[in-house]
C-alpha cells in the first residue's frame, strides 16, 4: 500500500504545483499589457494625476511579486479583488453564476456519462458492423459541429417551431426544481450531444484496445461465453481508461459551457468571462480563468488517482 499512497501523493503534489504555475501565468500575463492596467482602464485621454491615483487605489505602486502574493492569498480564500468596471467584489459577481454553471455541467454529465459509456461498450462489441459505421459517422458529425450550431438548431426546432422548451434560460430563485430542469434543458442537451459523441468514441477505442490482449483470447479459449469475457475479463481492466474518458470529457464540458451559455443567455460564469473579456475587466477575467483551470486540473487529478487505484499491478505490489 505504501507505493500506492506515494503515487497518489505525488500526483496531488504535481497537480497543485501545476495550478501554482498556472496562477503565475494568469497573473503575470496581465503584466505583459502594453503600459499597465491603469492606462488600459482609463484609456488614451487619462491625465497623469488620474493615472497615479488609480494606480495607488489598485495597489499598482507595489512591485509585481508582492501584488501576486496578495492576489494569490486572496484567491485561496475566494477573494479575487474588485471589478474594474462596476467596482463590485468579484466574488459577488461570479459566486452565484459559478454555482449555475456547475449545475448546468452536472445536468449534462448526469445524462451523458451513463448514456455514452453504455453506447460506447455496445458499439465496441458490434465493431465493424453497419451499426458501428453509422455510429461512427454520426458521432464524427456531432464532434465536428460547433456548439453554437447545435444550440441554434435545437432552438429552431424545440423552441421556435414546436415551443416545447424556452430558448432563453433565465433563472430566478423561486423556481421549482422541475421548472429549472425544463428551463435549462436545451443548453444541457447541447452539451450532452457534444460530450456524448466524444465519450462514446473514446470508450469504444479503449475497449477495443483491451479486447486485443492475449488474456482475452485466453478467456475465449477457456470456453467463456462473450458476456463473461466482457464482464469478468475486460471490464476490471477497463476502469482506468473509462475513468480517464469521463474525466477528460467533464473537463471538456467546462469549456464547452462558455459558448453554450452565450447562445442560451444562461447566467453562468462563462457569460461573465466573455463580458469581462470584451470590457477588459481583468480581475474578473483572472478569477474566471483561475476557476476554470482549477476545475480542469482537479478533474485530471481525479482521473489519474482513479487510474492508479484501479490498477491491479499497483494495488497488489510484488
Amino acid at each position: 500500500m505504501g507505493t500506492l499512497l506515494f503515487l497518489i501523493a505525488k500526483r496531488l503534489f504535481l497537480g497543485l504545483l501545476t495550478l501554482l504555475v498556472i496562477s503565475v501565468i494568469i497573473f503575470f500575463m496581465v503584466e505583459l499589457l502594453p503600459g499597465d492596467i491603469a492606462e488600459a482602464v482609463l484609456g488614451m485621454g487619462a491625465t497623469e494625476e488620474n493615472l497615479a491615483a488609480l494606480r495607488k487605489q489598485m495597489g499598482l505602486d507595489q512591485p509585481a511579486p508582492v501584488r501576486y502574493l496578495n492576489w494569490l492569498s486572496g484567491a485561496v480564500v475566494g477573494d479575487f479583488g474588485t471589478s474594474l468596471i462596476s467596482g463590485e467584489r468579484v466574488t459577488t459577481i461570479i459566486g452565484q453564476r459559478f454555482m449555475n454553471t456547475l449545475f448546468l455541467a452536472a445536468y449534462a454529465a448526469v445524462i451523458a456519462v451513463p448514456f455514452a459509456i453504455t453506447l460506447g461498450v455496445i458499439v465496441a462489441l458490434l465493431r465493424n458492423t453497419l451499426f458501428d459505421r453509422v455510429a461512427n459517422v454520426v458521432t464524427l458529425t456531432s464532434i465536428s459541429s460547433p456548439e453554437f450550431f447545435l444550440g441554434y438548431i435545437l432552438i429552431l426546432y424545440f423552441s421556435v417551431q414546436t415551443g416545447m422548451f424556452p430558448a432563453i434560460s433565465s433563472l430566478n430563485a423561486d423556481m421549482t426544481f422541475l421548472e429549472l430542469l425544463h428551463r435549462t434543458f436545451l443548453p444541457a442537451l447541447t452539451l450532452v450531444l457534444v460530450v456524448t459523441a466524444h465519450m462514446m468514441r473514446m470508450t469504444r477505442a479503449a475497449i477495443i484496445n483491451l479486447l486485443a490482449s492475449p488474456y482475452i483470447e485466453m478467456a475465449r479459449l477457456k470456453g467463456m461465453p462473450p458476456w463473461k469475457v466482457i464482464v469478468k475479463h475486460a471490464l476490471p481492466n477497463a476502469w482506468a481508461p473509462i475513468i480517464n474518458v469521463v474525466a477528460l470529457n467533464l473537463a471538456y464540458l467546462i469549456t464547452g459551457v462558455v459558448l453554450v451559455e452565450v447562445v442560451f443567455v444562461y447566467p453562468g460564469i462563462g457569460q461573465s468571462l466573455v463580458d469581462a473579456v470584451s470590457k477588459r475587466d481583468f480581475p474578473v477575467v483572472q478569477a474566471c480563468c483561475l476557476i476554470f483551470a482549477a476545475t480542469f486540473i482537479l478533474l485530471n487529478i481525479a482521473a489519474d488517482v482513479g487510474a492508479i487505484l484501479t490498477n491491479p499491478r499497483l494495488r497488489h505490489p510484488k
Binding site: Y215, M218, A219, R220, K222, G223, N237, P312, R313
Partner: peptide
C-alpha cells in the same frame, strides 16, 4: 474449450488476466 480441449499460450505473463 477449457473443458475437453485446453490451451497453453506462449506468453503466460500476457495471457493471465492481471
Amino acid at each position: 474449450r477449457g473443458a475437453r480441449i485446453a490451451y497453453v499460450a506462449q506468453s503466460a505473463a500476457a495471457s493471465f488476466n492481471p
